[in-house]
Computed example of a mutant assay.
Amino acid sequence: MKAIVWFLAPIFFATCNGHGSVRIVGGEELEDLSDYMFVVSFLSSENGNYSLCGGTLIDPRHVITAGHCSPGVSYIVVGSNNVIYGGSRYNVEKSVPHPDFSGSPSYRNDIAVLTLTEDVTEVTEFPKRPTSELNDFDISCTVLGKGLTSYPNGTVSQKLKKTNVKPISKIQCDYDWRKLVPRKTICATTDGTGTCPGDSGGPLLCNDELTGVVSFGYPCGTGVPDVYTDVYDFNDWIDSEIGEN
């Protein structure tokens, strides 16, 4: 199961409407979405063109996703375990990437806020954002997405998948990535499972908090740490965006 942005070819890959995205390899398919109704899929048009990205509802009107996933999103889909059909669609009124999002190849500040035209009614519980930096590397975190099930010839997962990953220190991540990882990120080991193209923008949940946003990785589940935007570092900016709506 992979939901990460892959870039800096040939080391990374990027396949989400011209932007990087990742999907989850390995992991568990979820038949029951009730615990994760806040995880949404994107559509790029009313005709149902599927965008290989996802996001997380943080309240009834706002979605957090990756900056590279934000262009062209017209609708979000809530409560569906099908890539295109089922669930409820909500119009996106505004899509705002972080003003310092750099795009490929660095993917600095890879985060965005989507504002919907109306409140989502199906979801009543939303993950909280962290109030402190993640510094406990002995915990297990969860990542969710509908990306490719393998790379490069895998198929898109029809059902939401989840897998457990282990966060690692920035020092270890810099070593594994040869210092190519931007600041304000969190890295997590994969051990044969992890994000893959199509999972970008999805949530990394640690201690039941929206700790990270799938950004990029090395395809897929190969042991190289996946990289997530650190939500804590962007709390003030997120507050400013959702406070204006």
Rank of each mutant, 00 (worst) to 15 (best):
D191T: 04
Q172N: 10
T131H: 06
G26A: 03
P225G: 11
T185N: 06
H98D: 03
T195L: 01
K146C: 10
P60N: 12
S104C: 04
L43Q: 14
P225K: 02
N47P: 00
I58H: 11
P152N: 03
T121K: 13
D119Q: 07
D208S: 12
K94G: 05
D174T: 05
E133Q: 14
E244D: 10
E31G: 14
V165Y: 10
G55S: 07
H62V: 10
S34T: 07
K146N: 15
W237H: 04
F12K: 06
S41F: 02
P99T: 04
H68P: 03
L33R: 15
L114W: 06
V214I: 01
I64R: 00
P203I: 03
G194W: 01
E29N: 13
I64L: 10
I24Q: 04
E209P: 12
T190W: 09
P167F: 09
M37Y: 08
V92N: 05
G67H: 05
S41C: 02
K170Y: 02
Y50M: 02
S157M: 06
P197C: 07
S240L: 10
I139K: 15
G198L: 03
D233A: 09
P10Y: 03
N235Q: 07
P130Y: 04
T229N: 13
V143I: 15
G201M: 00
S140D: 02
R178D: 06
H68D: 06
Y151I: 07
F101C: 09
Q158H: 10
L43G: 07
L144R: 14
L210C: 11
G221F: 11
P167H: 08
V156R: 09
D59N: 15
T124Q: 14
K184Y: 06
D119N: 13
G18S: 13
S88G: 00
Y90G: 11
S41I: 01
G48V: 01
G72K: 06
T163V: 15
